[in-house]
């Protein structure tokens, strides 16, 4: 009995020291990591909506428009996190949708750019934990260009699911995740345009 207590205490002490050290490291790095994430998002937005000089976060307006849940009780656009509208000299040039689909190794942070007439202008992956060499190829330009030019109105799917986008060899799940994000971005774009938010 005393032995159990002794072992428990030692394990507790080691865990406590580890937790303290982690809290300390988190404290000194948190701000810098957040600043870098904001900078990366800015770059991502600029790369997917070419020509935009300024972005405004219009998520709240879009959220006010769409019903939070569909008839089935599931969230309507679960993958879309934020919606940014890009302007050039006060004129709207396109919309960027920040999405988080689930890949093979965890959530994928992607940004999809859609032009005013509903064509995908760009796609970029901000953060992911896919398998290096397979799913990680979703960051390659070659793969991302497969989505550029797709139009709203046609569901976006990988060829294995009867769609138009060729998946990465050996990484169907990662490819499918990105395709579902683009699909939801285009569908939300259609809804927003139909309702005349901008």
């Amino acid at each position: 009995m005393r032995d159990v207590l002794r072992l428990g205490f030692i394990l507790f002490a080691i865990c406590a020291v580890a937790a303290g050290a982690l809290a300390f490291v988190n404290d000194i790095t948190e701000e810098r990591i957040a600043a870098q994430a904001a900078m990366k998002l800015e770059q991502a937005l600029e790369s997917v909506v070419p020509g935009a000089e300024e972005f405004r976060d219009e998520t709240d307006r879009v959220l006010a428009l769409k019903a939070a849940v569909s008839d089935g009780g599931r969230p309507e656009f679960p993958l879309i996190n934020r919606v940014y509208v890009g302007y050039d000299n006060g004129e709207m040039v396109g919309t960027a949708f920040a999405c988080t689909p689930s890949g093979y190794g965890g959530p994928i942070d992607a940004v999809v750019g859609v032009s005013r007439d509903g064509v995908v202008t760009g796609l970029t992956v901000v953060k992911h934990t896919e398998t290096p060499g397979l799913g990680a190829n979703i960051t390659s330009r070659d793969f991302q260009m497969r989505f550029v030019g797709l139009r709203a109105g046609i569901p976006v799917k990988v060829t294995k699911d009867g769609g138009q986008v060729e998946a990465i060899t050996g990484a169907t799940i990662s490819s499918r995740a990105v395709a579902s994000a683009v699909d939801q971005a285009l569908r939300l774009f259609e809804l927003v345009t139909r309702e005349g938010v901008w």
């Binding site: 002794r6 580890a18 490291v25 000194i28």
Partner: peptide, 28 residues
């Protein structure tokens, strides 16, 4: 580290170290 609980101790040490390396690299 007592030998009977060495494996959980090693795992705590390794996981903490990996997380710290991850955070420090991301920040700096």
């Amino acid at each position: 580290i007592p030998s009977r609980i060495r494996i959980p101790c090693y795992i705590v040490v390794i996981a903490s170290f990996v997380t710290m390396v991850d955070l420090i690299m991301a920040a700096f």
